[in-house]
Design a protein around this nucleic acid. Structure first.
Lengths: 219, 219
DNA sequence: TAGAAAATATGAGATTTCTCATATCCACTA
DNA sequence: TAGTGGATATGAGAAATCTCATATTTTCTA
């Protein structure tokens, strides 16, 4: 992850993202700005992050490694949102990896200097409560909705969510895990999408060939 | 819901449940104690509660009514936990019903007098953040785990979770919705449980006849 | 108290999804 | 460079689950 030192760029991100409103003290001076390319890690699994991040541009995915070594996709987030806030508030839980899905910009507040203050800042904490409650609500809705649709629909959403431009390219193993279906079945439905002309296979990735169709399916 | 006025009973609940540790100010004096019987509502849908509750004994379920009038089960909670905290922090969201599954005792802090203070109390807010983060984690685990098991396993958990004593009696429509399967299929699997001797049908409710088997299934 | 609406129940056939077996391709390492 | 492990791929049959059709029973209400 590359730091962007241009003060002007930092200020622009801060101003455009509503970042400052989440705190009751002035965070501007100590806030750094990072740029992560697609595939790059913003938080590495198991390593307590040194910053509280605020994603102000881009999309990321959250993963964890299971006992058997398999990587499991957990969730997706898009700007604007905090990253690393779970690690901040409950230092006991495992640290899960956050990886950029496309070029991302993150504001970053160093925890070494601000952890204590954040954990005592009622404005920040109330904001966080609200965001967590909102996330909960979204999860419940997404989940209950998901359950009731066959894979075709959920896969369409997943492709649109994770595609970079027109290219879909996620490890099938992870995708199948995340979508809660067998590897085999995922391949069936992907093949079906190709047959219907929604996707075009290009080596080991897929090009979105009929975006409206996918959007219709994902509703 | 009946108020229990015995000061001694209130103090016992407060002491036994770790209630006071969630606040940085003294809540003891203003805290009331309520008793809810099975089936009774602790929070009614759409009506902003007048208290922040803290469940110190019993299990409850969270429901909401959808546009078409159907009632949808969302989640279950057991003591000790807050009830009505989502309504407190984000006053915009709809208020969802909380109903006792068995006799419950709830400590209750009147919001009229304490809302502002709670929303500015860093200790309470940090606690809440932690609980919400924990709930998130649990949800994610439950969701992803659920997805990968056939109904038999999930139904076993569901029966053990919602049974009152040895009697299972939930509206099939709600159960099917919650478990994410069709009404028809739920009935198939219930019939199968009866055939295998896990359950005994008694009129329109079911008696748990082989708890170990259900526990094994629910793992 | 008759009739309507909702919950319970069951059958039959169609879809979705799973398991297992097997083969190829690719990257990495000894 | 041969070999190993992992991801990709595909087939075949079985299991899980759905949809639709249709009764029966309960509950509510006019």
């Amino acid at each position: 992850m590359k730091q962007i030192r241009s003060r002007e760029a930092v200020e622009r991100c801060i101003a455009a993202s509503g970042y400052r409103e989440h705190f009751s003290f002035d965070v501007r001076e100590d806030t750094a700005l990072f740029q992560a390319e697609a595939g790059e890690y913003i938080i590495r699994e198991g390593i307590m992050p040194e910053y509280l991040f605020y994603l102000c541009q881009g999309r990321v995915k959250l993963c964890t490694t299971m006992e058997n070594g398999q990587v499991r996709l957990i969730d997706f987030f898009q700007a604007p949102c905090f990253i690393g806030e779970m690690e901040l508030i409950s230092a006991d839980g495992e640290v899960r990896a956050v990886q950029a899905l496309e070029p991302c910009r993150c504001l970053a507040l160093p925890l070494a200097r601000h952890r204590e203050r954040l954990l005592r800042d009622p404005r920040f904490l109330l904001e966080l409560c609200r965001l967590l409650a909102e996330k909960n609500r979204r999860n419940v809705i997404a989940f209950t909705r998901n359950q009731s649709f066959p894979l075709g629909n959920r896969l369409a959403s997943f492709i649109l969510l994770t595609a970079e431009g027109d290219i879909y390219r996620q490890p099938h193993t992870q995708a199948a895990e995340y979508l809660g279906v067998s590897y085999r079945h995922l391949l069936y439905v992907l093949a079906d999408f190709v047959k219907r002309g929604y996707l075009q296979k290009e080596g080991r990735s897929y090009r979105i060939a009929d975006r409206p169709a996918l959007e219709r399916l994902s509703r």
